[in-house]
Design a protein around this nucleic acid. Structure first.
Length: 418
DNA sequence: CATCCACTGGAATACCGGGTTC
DNA sequence: GAACCCGGTATTCCAGTGGATG
């Protein structure tokens, strides 16, 4: 091995030749100073929330829109602006509490986040489990009362919360305004799913949804503008071909106008270029970035799967291999899965549970599954692989526990001829 | 239109981390 | 600090259901 006399970090240290500005501008969480094609939405939201500056409770709002259409960005942007506005008015008592329901999706967690968001000092943090829900709720209520201002609770991915835990937390939060004589809460929900309100109790629905906003997907031109903006912030504008930027925008526009994906692509293209020699982002770099992104997503999702999901996926890929891309039925891969689990010395899950795992894998896009009826011969789910089974097996083999299965072959006789 | 297999929704159970009480 | 309470999560258990084919 050649050991250079230079410091090990030298080659990473000298800043990129491509990124001459803020690198964060290419990261998912970045909130720019202006939001191309979302100015009106930001203004509208600010208008809805503005009563809080005069100590009135604003209407509750729900923002709908597909992923990557700027919902969260607009909200974060307005939050920042509002924080600035509060600083110049000492009389306004406002707290903004962010809850990401994609992560915190149970009643206890949501109430806890609200309670912690109202804290004045670090010491009074609430226990993250253990208390009866009622006690937690009363504590939160008390805190809101002593705060005696307006708490704007931002529930990102509110649809996930409702789907998983129902609407009781929302009911409780809304009830604060009737019980509390001092503080007020305003709920700002962000949802990917237009229909989640169907799961709500009518009383909750009418009180929660006082205002709605629907953000439409961006088209290619709009994404192009966003990308140009971001490349300015990042200082990469001179290093990227216009055609590459257009391609990037076009690819993302095809996927429901998802600006986040466009920015992801751009970021990866930048990273690829930094490692390569050309020093310029061209159209091909974007396509290469796209392939890398897709590959990474599959590797990431497969390798972070829980053990039993991996085993199920493994069985499916084995059968897929034997049948040369054919589909397999519940009976087939469940038998195989049981054998594999047995060989590994772990107790197998029931078929019921495996049926759910199939649903999860299918949601992740790793497999396709559909229920098929064979008349007299009953009903079953058949699944097909979405990615090459050898590729999936490779990723799975990276798992220590599974590497020993590399050479497992299902017995031919266990597979009925289809 | 009966029949067959397993899909599917919900109740039940087990276990976990953590607080509370005595 | 043992025994118990609490809510969350994962899984199992059970029973009702679906739907095309023969």
């Amino acid at each position: 091995m050649v050991v250079s006399s230079k410091n090990l970090f030298e080659k990473f240290n000298n800043s990129s030749l491509i990124v001459k500005g803020q690198r964060q501008a290419l990261e998912p969480g970045f909130v720019p100073e202006r939001l191309p094609h979302r100015e009106e939405e930001a203004e509208h939201l600010a208008e809805i929330l503005s009563p809080s500056l005069r100590n009135f409770k604003p209407s509750n709002v729900i923002i709908f829109g597909k992923p990557g259409v700027g919902k969260t960005s607009v909200v974060k942007f307005v939050e920042n602006e509002m924080t600035k506005a509060i600083q110049s008015r000492l009389d306004a008592k406002i707290k903004i509490i962010d809850v990401n329901c994609g992560i915190v999706d149970n009643p206890y967690g949501v109430l806890l986040s609200v309670g912690d968001g109202l804290l004045e000092s670090w010491e009074e943090r609430l226990p993250f489990t253990g208390w009866p829900l009622e006690k937690l709720y009363n504590t939160v209520l008390e805190k809101i009362n002593t705060f005696a201002g307006i708490a704007i609770i931002v529930l990102d991915e509110i649809d996930k919360l409702v789907r998983k835990s129902g609407d009781t937390v929302l009911y409780q939060l809304l009830r604060i305004n009737e019980t509390s004589n001092q503080g007020r809460v305003c709920i700002l929900g962000i949802s990917n799913d237009l229909r989640f309100t169907e799961y709500l109790d009518p009383r909750v629905r009418s009180r929660l949804i006082e205002e709605t906003m629907v953000y439409n997907p961006y088209n290619a031109t709009q994404i192009y503008d966003i990308l140009r903006d971001r490349s300015m912030y990042a200082g990469i504008a001179d290093s990227i071909d216009d055609s590459a930027m257009k391609t990037c925008a076009a690819l993302a526009a095809q996927e429901h106008g998802d600006a986040r994906r466009a920015i992801d692509l751009l970021r990866i293209a930048v990273e690829l270029t930094e490692k390569g020699e050309e020093g310029r982002i061209v159209e091909d770099t974007i396509y290469e970035a796209k392939r890398k992104l897709e590959r990474d997503v599959v590797v990431e999702t497969v390798s972070t799967l829980p053990l039993h999901s991996k085993l199920v996926l493994f069985s499916i890929s084995l059968i897929d291999e034997i049948k040369n891309g054919g589909s397999s039925t519940m009976g087939e891969f469940y038998d195989l899965y049981e054998k594999i689990a047995d060989r590994m010395g772990v107790s197998s899950l029931t078929q019921r549970r495996v049926a759910d795992i199939i649903g999860e894998l299918s949601n992740l896009g790793l497999i396709d599954s559909k229920v098929q009826s064979f008349g007299r011969y009953g009903r079953t789910t058949t699944v097909t692989m979405n990615y090459g089974s050898s590729k999936i097996k490779d990723i799975l083999s990276a798992d220590e526990m599974l590497s020993q299965l590399k050479d497992v072959k299902p017995l031919q006789k266990s597979l009925p001829v289809s």
